[in-house]
Design a binder for these strands. Structure first.
Length: 111
DNA sequence: TTGCTGACCGACG
DNA sequence: CCGTCGGCCAGCA
């Protein structure tokens, strides 16, 4: 364990996201006992991009289900493409039935 | 060392 | 309804 680093915790949660499932920055932040720390979650994912680990950051979106971080994937449309590849309907950079694909770490991982 | 910014969220006016 | 602000932590100039 020893997740002294904030991003290490984020990676741990994001990597546990099931296939075809999505979550929000706030949910992860809340899982880290810091609801308002959602900003750092996105920032941690940004670092994950540089990390050698496979972080499915495309499964992480904002509360609105919008692919706010799609621009950070390097290629426009890649994030949407990946989500659709997992069976998630995405349109206009927004996930359809977001709550239906929503995966809450606090509810699935039990704190 | 200080200060700003950041893939957000919720509250306030 | 929409614009603005505060908050959390860590990296960078």
């Amino acid at each position: 364990m020893a997740e002294d680093l904030f991003f290490q915790k984020v990676y741990n949660v994001v990597k546990q996201i099931p296939h075809g499932r999505v979550t929000s920055y706030g949910a992860i932040a809340e899982f880290l006992a810091a609801r308002s720390a959602a900003r750092m979650v996105g920032w941690a994912l940004n670092a994950s991009h540089c990390s050698a680990q496979n972080i499915p950051a495309h499964r992480v979106v904002n509360r609105n289900g919008q692919l706010t971080g799609k621009h950070h994937f390097g290629v426009t449309g890649l994030m949407q493409q990946l989500l659709q590849s997992e069976g998630i309907s995405v349109e206009n950079d927004t996930i359809k039935d977001f709550h239906k694909h929503f995966w809450d770490p606090n509810r699935e991982l039990l704190r």
